[in-house]
Design a protein around this nucleic acid. Structure first.
Lengths: 214, 214
DNA sequence: TGTACATCAGTGAACGCGCGTTCACTGATGTAC
DNA sequence: TGTACATCAGTGAACGCGCGTTCACTGATGTAC
């Protein structure tokens, strides 16, 4: 949404429309625009079809050529963002091969992601619905966050196994406990920015040490 | 909001209006109705002036005799709910005097509160704004959650001091770390109910053990 | 005890707004001949 | 190479809705005399 000095919405510069056969390109532009509007703190209810259309430089009805309704659009954004989140987590592992170092890098990346993209973080981990529709669970299909969660459990398991026996049946429990800890750090920093927070890295490292994951 | 079998809103039974001089009673009824509407998962944007009025059995303009606008109403609810939350925490300590037992009871009560009143929990610890206005920090006045936070830091400090020297300068750090852990447990259970969560008590006890708070 | 009146709790109707969505359309562009 | 036409990306105007809020009002009730 372009806002001029009077605070009024002004139309974006008229864009060239796509050539015939390239209409599908708009779909990605709409997804990107929605993600951008979502990036700063907020949830699905703050993002309107009109604002998305305005940002893309198109009129609202155009959106409906690619998404059946608003819930469909937001669901697509959630899926794309979960994929992006997983990519960021994996990239954070860098070239490290030591299991506990890999885990530590992932944990730091987790809270950094929430800090850098609070709107997206909330959409993935805090939003309970998409306004009209329930989030995530596209009935029948698996939850879009499942792969990322499995990566997490795997990373915790490998760190726990270092030196121990083959498989610890309690590693899922530890993985969940660590996840809730990371979520708490990430989420409260977003919702209570006025608190005297120590550096997120320190909290994460203290948590890993407490859980014997270092 | 009363909903009949067709899902349509139907007017509440007409209530007797308050006697002259007792108009202020409506204020409390409005606060209660707003809190009730907020109790189930949701945030301030889901609660409308009209729904509150309907629940009280009064017309929307009546609300404005007691609150200047919607943000003012929600701010009052936040304050009342923070007080109630603090009362619940203190009551949970029961008659126990052992510092770490007191802390443990408080932690269990924390996640139980979130489970029992997800909407209120989110309003206090997860909501970032009240729709129109920013939440909490009524400029100049102290944050309404401050007393409860200080109770928490105190409980952690007393548990840490058991046996140790007089005052641990890192007890605020530990208190924040524990709080984020509790928030993560409480909040993710609300937003991700489809996950295979172990009993909240087990997660809390494991967290306390990890932080050497038992 | 009776009555006029000021007070005050609450009403009813309306406002302007932004929303999601629908519908008939326009006009540029690629293709067939 | 030129032209008629089908296709398809995107438009413009409108809809019905629920919202927060305003405003002039009504009518029950307590009080003064």
């Amino acid at each position: 949404m372009t806002v001029n000095t009077d605070g009024l919405r002004s139309p974006r510069a008229r864009r060239r429309r796509h050539r015939r056969g390239e209409g599908a390109l708009l779909r990605d532009e709409v997804l990107d625009a929605t993600a951008t509007l979502l990036a700063q703190r907020g949830d699905g209810r703050e993002v309107t079809i009109r604002a998305v259309a305005d940002r893309v430089g198109v009129t609202p009805p155009s959106i409906y050529r690619h998404f059946t309704d608003k819930a469909d659009l937001l669901r697509a954004v959630v899926e794309a963002r979960f994929e992006h989140f997983r990519t960021v987590m994996r990239a954070a592992e860098a070239t490290s091969t030591a299991p506990c170092d890999v885990l530590r890098r992932r944990c730091h990346a987790y809270v950094r992601y929430a800090h850098d993209h609070p709107g997206h973080y909330r959409l993935l981990f805090s939003a309970m619905d998409l306004g009209p529709a329930p989030l995530g669970l596209t009935e029948g299909r698996e939850h879009p966050g499942r792969p990322a969660f499995e990566d997490h459990v795997g990373a915790v398991t490998r760190c726990l196994e270092r030196g121990k026996g083959p498989h610890d049946p309690g590693s899922t429990f530890i993985a969940l406990l660590l996840w809730t800890q990371l979520h708490g750090i990430a989420d409260l920093r977003i919702s209570k920015p006025e608190m005297p927070w120590p550096p997120a890295e320190d909290l994460v490292d203290a948590a890993l040490a407490a859980l014997a994951l270092r």
